[in-house]
Design a protein around this nucleic acid. Structure first.
Length: 481
DNA sequence: AGGGCACTGCAAGGCATCGA
DNA sequence: TCGATGCCTTGCAGTGCCCT
C-alpha cells in the first residue's frame, strides 16, 4: 500500500525538498528546481476558481484577499472517502434504529403497539431516533437499543463472525452433557456447572458427523417423535388438529417472550401469530430439512419482522424432535438467540431480496419456510462470492450511490414513524394493520393517503385537531399529507 | 475563467516469506 | 505444497491548481 505517502504541504517545495516527500518524488524532482505539491483539500471558492488554496481555517489566504466567504466541504484532515464512509455508517445506524422500531411495531399485537406509540408521542425514545444521536459536544452517542428489547437478548453484538454461533451467554443454560454431545463449546459459569445434570446418555441427540462444515452448529435432522415413541415427520400425515394445538401453545410462549409492555389479551396474541404461522409452515420446514439431512441447533436473528416467526417455527421443530438430557423440554432460549453478526448482515440482505421478489408475494409462511431452510446453507457458504460494488463502479461512486439509497430509506422510515406518532391511536392501528398485511412494504412507496371518514373536513386542518376528542373517543379522521 | 496536467489516495496484483 | 500474510508496484479515478 502507498498509505505512507507524504501529504500535507500546500506549498512549493524546493529541490532539496522536505523530508516528508516520498523517495520517488524526490528523485523525480531532482532534475527540477522546484516541485509542485498540492494540499489535501482546497476550500470551495479556491476549487471553483481553480487557484491555490493554503487551506488555513476558518479563512484561507485567497478568500481573505478576495473578501470571499471561505467554506470547506469536509472537516480538516479527512478525505472525501473517509467522510463518506463515516457518514454512511452514521446514517446506517439511524436507519437500523428506525427499522427496528417499525419492525417491532408491525410484529406487536395492536394494543401493545399502541402502548409503544404512546411512549413515542411522549418523546421517550427521541434520543434513539434521527437527529438526536449526537451529544452536546458533538461526539456520537453510542448506538442504543430500544427499551422494548426482547428478553432473549443475549447478544453482545460482537463481530466475530461464525464464532457467534458457538459462543453463548449465561442466559442460556444448557446442561454440559447436552452441549458436549452436540459439539458446543459453551462458556458456562461455575454456578451453572455446579447445578448441571451429570453426564447422561442422550439418545435423542446423536453425535454430530464431524465431517460437517460446522460440527457445532448442525445436527442430523431428527423427525418428530410421536407420543407413542415412534417417529414420523411433520408431513402431511400429521394430524392437523394436534399440530395446530401444539402450535398455538408455542405461539403463546413465543409471544410472551418477545412482546414487550403490557401483555395483550391471550386471544389476541394467538390470533396474531396464528395468522402468520399456519401448519404448512412447519410442514414445509420439516420436509425441506429432511431433504437437507441436518438442521440448525440454534438459530440466531436480529429484531426483524421475521424474528418471532422464525423463532417459533424453529422452536416448534426442535422441541418436537428433541428433549434435553434431563428429559425437560427444549425451551425457546435453547433454540433461538437474538443478536446480529457479520453473517447476519448477509442473511438480512438475502431476506430483503426475498421479501421483494416473486416469492415475497406469496404468504409470509412460505417465505419463512424458505428462510429456515436456507439459513444454514447461507452460513455454510458464507456468501464468498459477494461483490462490494457493481462491476465498473468505483468505491466512491458506490459509496455515494449507496448513501443516497440509505438516506432515501431513512427518510421514508422517519416519515412513517412521524406519521404514526401524530396519528390518532385508531388510525395508527389501521396503518399498522396494513403494514402487517404487507401493503406498505418498502416504505419508499408508502402512499401516505389514509381513508378519511369525514371527507367534509378541511384537509388543511391543524395537526392538534386530529387529537380532538369527540364523545369520549378519538375523532376518527386524519390528514392526507 | 477554466483547460488540462500534476498529484494523491486507494485498490488490486505480484512476489517473497513463513509456518503448517 | 499450500495457504496466510505483508511488502512493493502498478493503475486509475478524483482533485488541486498552474498557467494561458
Amino acid at each position: 500500500m502507498s498509505g505512507s505517502r507524504a501529504v500535507g504541504f500546500a506549498t512549493w517545495i524546493d529541490g532539496e525538498a522536505s523530508s516528508t516527500v516520498d523517495a520517488p518524488h524526490e528523485e523525480e524532482s531532482a532534475g527540477n528546481n522546484k516541485k509542485r505539491h498540492q494540499g489535501k483539500q482546497a476550500c470551495q471558492q479556491c476549487r471553483r476558481r481553480k487557484i491555490k488554496c493554503d487551506e488555513t481555517r476558518p479563512k484561507c489566504k485567497s478568500c481573505g484577499k478576495a473578501k470571499l466567504t471561505c467554506e470547506y466541504e469536509l472537516p480538516a484532515g479527512q478525505t472525501r472517502q473517509q467522510a463518506l464512509v463515516e457518514n454512511q455508517s452514521k446514517i446506517q445506524r439511524e436507519l437500523e434504529a428506525h427499522a427496528s422500531l417499525i419492525s417491532t411495531l408491525r410484529t406487536l399485537p395492536s394494543d401493545a403497539a399502541v402502548e409503544v406509540l404512546n411512549r413515542l408521542r411522549e418523546g421517550q425514545y427521541d434520543g434513539i431516533l434521527v437527529g438526536r444521536r449526537e451529544s452536546q459536544d458533538g461526539t456520537e452517542v453510542q448506538h442504543a437499543s430500544f427499551p422494548w428489547e426482547y428478553p432473549v437478548d443475549n447478544a453482545e453484538d460482537d463481530a466475530s463472525g461464525e464464532d457467534d454461533e458457538t459462543n453463548s451467554d449465561a442466559t442460556v443454560s444448557l446442561p454440559q452433557s447436552y452441549t458436549q454431545s452436540i459439539g458446543y463449546n459453551m462458556a458456562l459459569s461455575s454456578s451453572q456447572q455446579s447445578t448441571q445434570v451429570p453426564s447422561m446418555p442422550f439418545t435423542g441427540m446423536p453425535q454430530v458427523d464431524q465431517n460437517l462444515p460446522h460440527p457445532g452448529y448442525y445436527a442430523p435432522y431428527m423427525a418428530y417423535q410421536t407420543p407413542a415413541g415412534g417417529q414420523q415427520s411433520l408431513s402431511m400425515g400429521t394430524p392437523a388438529e394436534q399440530l395446530r394445538h401444539g402450535q398455538i401453545e408455542i405461539s403463546q410462549q413465543v409471544s410472551q417472550q418477545f412482546h414487550m409492555g403490557p401483555l395483550a389479551e391471550e386471544s389476541h396474541i394467538t390470533t396474531d401469530l396464528d395468522e402468520y404461522l399456519p401448519c404448512d409452515t412447519l410442514q414445509w420446514c420439516d420436509t425441506a430439512l429432511r431433504d437437507l439431512g441436518f438442521e440448525s441447533l440454534v438459530i440466531r436473528s436480529d429484531r426483524g419482522a421475521e424474528t418471532t416467526l422464525a423463532a417459533a417455527a424453529h422452536w416448534a421443530l426442535s422441541s418436537a424432535a428433541r428433549k434435553k438430557p434431563d428429559g425437560t423440554p427444549i425451551t425457546l432460549n435453547d433454540a433461538f438467540r437474538h443478536g446480529t453478526s457479520k453473517e447476519n448482515v448477509s442473511i438480512e440482505m438475502w431476506w430483503n431480496q426475498q421479501t421483494r421478489s416473486m416469492l415475497g408475494r406469496e404468504r409470509l409462511a412460505h417465505r419463512l419456510a424458505f428462510l429456515a431452510v436456507y439459513i444454514p446453507i447461507i452460513r455454510m457458504a458464507k456468501l464468498t462470492c459477494e461483490y462490494e460494488r457493481l462491476a465498473g463502479q468505483t468505491r466512491q461512486q458506490a459509496l455515494v450511490e449507496n448513501q443516497s439509497k440509505i438516506q432515501h430509506e431513512l427518510e421514508a422510515h422517519a416519515s412513517l414513524i412521524s406519521t404514526l406518532r401524530t396519528l390518532p391511536s385508531d388510525a395508527a392501528v389501521e396503518v399498522l394493520d396494513r403494514l402487517r398485511g404487507g401493503q406498505y412494504d418498502g416504505y419508499g412507496s408508502f402512499p401516505w393517503e389514509y381513508p378519511v371518514d369525514n371527507a367534509d373536513e378541511d384537509a388543511s386542518v391543524e395537526e392538534d385537531e386530529a387529537f380532538t376528542e369527540v364523545g369520549g373517543g378519538l375523532k376518527r379522521y386524519w390528514h392526507r399529507t
